[in-house]
Every structure is written in C-alpha cells, then in structure tokens.
Computed example of a mutant assay.
Amino acid sequence: MTSTPLNAEDERVLAALALALVDKPRATLQELAQAIGISKATLYRFSRTREELVDRLMAHGAHLMNRSLEEAELDKAPTVDALRRFIEGQLRHSELAAFMIYYWKPDTLQDARAAATWTDYFSVLDEFFVRGQREGIFRIEIGAAVLSESLISLLSGLMDAERRGRIARASLPGMIETLFLAGAQSPAGR
C-alpha cells in the first residue's frame, strides 16, 4: 500500500486488476496480467503476491470511496444535491466497488486501520441521514443505519447488474436516486 498519489495510468491498471480479480477470482498473477494486457513485470510494480494485490486494491478502493464521500459534502451541501453527488462519486469508481463487494469480509478485518476506515465511512453516511431526517427530507421512522445500508446495498446491486450488462451505466445515477428516494423520502420532503 502506498500513500503516494497515483497517476492516471496506475489508476487505470488498478481498476482493470480489480475487475479481473472479480471476473477471474482464481487467476494467477500471470493470468491477471494477461487479462488486462500488461506484463508480469508491470504487475509486480503493484504487488508481488496475490495477497498483497488484494490488500492494495482494498486500500485503494477504500481511499477512493472515502474521497468521493468527502467530495459529496454530505455535512453541508443541500441534502438531495449531496445525495446525488455521493451516488455519482461512488459510481465513478465502480470497478473498485465491484472488487470490494466481492472481497470485503468485515468479520475478518485484521487491520484495525481498515476497520476504522469503514466505521468512519458509515458514521459520515449515518450523520448525513440524521441531518436529512431533521430537515424533513428522509423518513424519520427508518433509522439512519438502515438508510445507509439500504443505499449502499442499492448501489452495490445495481453496479453489479451494470457490470454484468443487465442495465445501462448512463441510467444508473438517476435510477439509484429515484429508487432510493421513493422509499426513503418523507412525504413532506417530496
């Protein structure tokens, strides 16, 4: 795992590797390199073992998801606009999201820092929904944690459906927002 900012090509390679691992979960490093059109030596620049690659992709995915969470400005932007930006930001990194959906096992997080990252992520999202409930935008009878989990589940499910070719990517942001708000929005917020 590196803290150095990645260039666009490294970002592209990591996104491709993430999808390759989802599509071919038992592939060797050599097969993964071939699947995305790079040499094994180039792949070794990112990681030397499969476990190291999974850890690196998990850390990179968490970084991207948290960055898009921050960019949505859930704490201060108008609620529906912030929700829209959050959805769009999460979809921007759908390859890493697909990887994380497939590989993330919260019960087995050994790294305390990784566990704290996800606790913080959901805390920010929960606080956003509490704010929206106070403003009358979201239904008060549905807990903030339920709203957070529901939104993430909807995002995850529809990102996977898009990856499998069942729905068009262009329609995802609006579709997710509409489906989520239809169930979560309070009658007063409509």
Rank of each mutant, 00 (worst) to 15 (best):
A35F: 03
V130H: 14
D107N: 12
R26E: 09
T42E: 12
D81S: 08
I152L: 11
S156K: 10
T178M: 13
A41W: 07
A161K: 15
Q133R: 15
L74V: 02
L14R: 12
E149F: 07
G136S: 11
L83A: 05
I101P: 00
T178C: 05
E52C: 01
L172P: 01
E95C: 08
V80F: 02
I38M: 10
R67V: 07
L29G: 11
N66D: 08
G157E: 00
L69T: 11
D10W: 03
Q185I: 14
Q133S: 10
E162S: 13
A62M: 04
A20E: 04
W104K: 03
A77Y: 10
R113E: 13
S148H: 08
E162F: 03
A20Y: 05
A182I: 09
D126H: 04
E127R: 15
A35H: 02
T178E: 13
F128N: 04
D107I: 04
Q90M: 08
D120T: 13
S39L: 07
Q30C: 03
S3I: 13
V80T: 13
D107H: 12
E88Q: 14
T117F: 05
R166A: 10
E95Q: 11
A98Y: 00
F180R: 08
E71V: 02
E52W: 03
M175F: 14
L17T: 07
V13Y: 10
R190A: 13
F122W: 02
V130F: 11
T4C: 09
S68A: 02
T117R: 14
F180M: 06
H93F: 06
A15N: 11
L83N: 03
T42Q: 14
E73A: 15
E127S: 15
A41N: 11
R50H: 14
E162V: 06
I142L: 12
L29E: 02
R166S: 04
L151W: 05
Y121H: 12
V54G: 04
